[in-house]
Design a protein around this nucleic acid. Sequence first.
RNA 1: GGGGACGUAGUUCAGUUGGUUAGAAUGCUGCCCUGUCACGGCAGGGGUCGCGGGUUCGAGCCCCGUCGUCCCCGCCA
Length: 611
Amino acid sequence: MLDFLGTRQRTHTCGELRAADAGKTVTLMGWVNRRRDHGNLIFLDLRDRYGITQIVLDKEISPEGHPKAEHVRPEYVVAAIGKVRLRGADAINPKMVTGEIEVAATELLVLNDSKVPPFSPAEDAIQNEEVRLKYRYLDLRRPEMQHNIETRHKVALAVREYLANQGFYEIETPYLTGSTPEGARDYLVPSRVNPGTFYALPQSPQLFKQILMISGLDKYFQIARCFRDEDLRADRQPEFTQIDLEMSFPQQETVFKVVEGFLKAAFEVAGEKIDTPFPRMTYDEAIRLYGIDKPDQRLPPMTDIRDVFSAEELGSLKIEPGLPIVAIVIPGKQGMSNTQKKVFGQEINAAVGPDLAWLDVERLEKSAEYSALAGRIDAAAGKNCGLARVEPENRLIVLSPRIGTEPPAKDRLWLYKKAGQLRLDLAKRFQDEHRAFEKKGNADDYKFLWVTDFPFFEWDEEKKTWTFAHHPFTSPHEDDLIAGRMESDPEAVRSLAYDIVLNGLELGSGSIRIHRQDVQSQIFRALGMSDEEAKARFGFFLEALQYGTPPHGGIALGLDRIVMILTGTASLREVIAFPKTAKAIDLMVDAPSAVRDEQLKELHIRPVTRS
RNA sequence: GGGGACGUAGUUCAGUUGGUUAGAAUGCUGCCCUGUCACGGCAGGGGUCGCGGGUUCGAGCCCCGUCGUCCCCGCCA
């Protein structure tokens, strides 16, 4: 039998009563976390967002409430009315913040019952993610998830507050819109009143925020939902949230400062201190030192050690001339048994492939012929990594292209990327030994980095053409424009695009935009895009550009990823209230789903069955 | 699109070389218990071994297919 709430009101939450509250008459409401039945004495742990408080039902104190408590089960919703009292010295629970007190109930209202849940919110996350997602409301009751959602809220609020104080306006942009210039697939929404046409859900508010600058709004931000119909990953959901901003008349550094400011504020509300400003690194440097455009600086960089080899050594070791020789340090990795070394060797062989040779400097050290070389390698790599020495505290692997190797292995970029991948694979493989990925509770836990000077063009191997590396409204370096490199040497043109990287994760990406119509046309021409094509895709925007566009630029950061790092979780699903599976399915609402024929007809859509 | 891991009770898992009636813990149900807090004690119930097909005298176990979840590559610039 359920009780009616009547005019009862909650007086306190389940997380706030302390010893100082002893004697107060209170009304608590919440979910039954656990029930411990001792016959004439029943304990209920009452849970809400704020915590857990122990309620005692004593047959003598509450002859009516006690029998109700006998029938109460986990996840029932109850109201307990009674007096806060101090627990006896031996009954204090030091594990609970409310552990010094309990509520001796005089009255118990059973406000709602519950089916037996498929898993208990009182326990840690179950392995079965399918069940967690299907019963998301139960999963979200777990304190851990409530903490993640709380952190997300606090971060978003801190960002809003910071940006508002810096003079940014929060402005909403449409969800029902046209295709934006990111390269991903669009989610399409059919138009009923315009047969055969579709809206696209925004991959980002890119064009709108630029138009807001043309509109003279000066500083814009939005915590914006974005949609991209691409295959998913642990850190990629089909809909995700960006902290999106744009400002007029900025230099790159102006944008960096704003981002550093709100990140500092955001981390602070999550209880983490970070140092600003963040270091800067060019794209070329990132590739050379880390083999990737999003370096994880919790690990030592790579070193090109070609210079320490003598001509004879290069010859006798059969190393391809003219290409880098890359040394990779595996921190905190030393002693291996012969069996381990054998397995290790096979793993690296598989990872580097047939075009690259590799050697373990420890082996080199032991050879009479090369021990001096080993010392020089060690010194060079150590210096670059800021280490006094590499072997034997750390392990040193050297990677070089075999002599006579064919393209693509002859390409520096290919080699650096391959080495960078190996560096990460090895770091992941030995993370239990070096523990570089574990939080240490200081500012070093968060290695922020600005990566700048991205190449403007990118070679599309599939389409055999140059394509834009960022998006087509990114401004090239003025110097490269002045020097005429757009035509003469497109590969060398740098863009005013920048990424913000944290611990090897791309947090966000932005650029200074093109504000001049003549430059914009030049870019489209360089990309081989005809005036007609450009007009068809972005006509409204090109038109807008011609009405007094101020220099402007901005950035967008993944809110979900920031919260993921702050909560130390391994998947975006842990920080999104209602996420989707790797196949973009919402298991709780069962979306996407088939719709009625009439609905399709109304939308002028006919399904095609693929054979 | 490709590769990998997993799928057995509500949940977490075990299940040997293919061999009787598929087990454990926990949760669940009932009874008992006035100081527990992962309470405890006694008793009980609970299975389409993801699904379909095949091999076999016999399949949770072997084979083929399929579905689902997760991870990675491609993709997402």
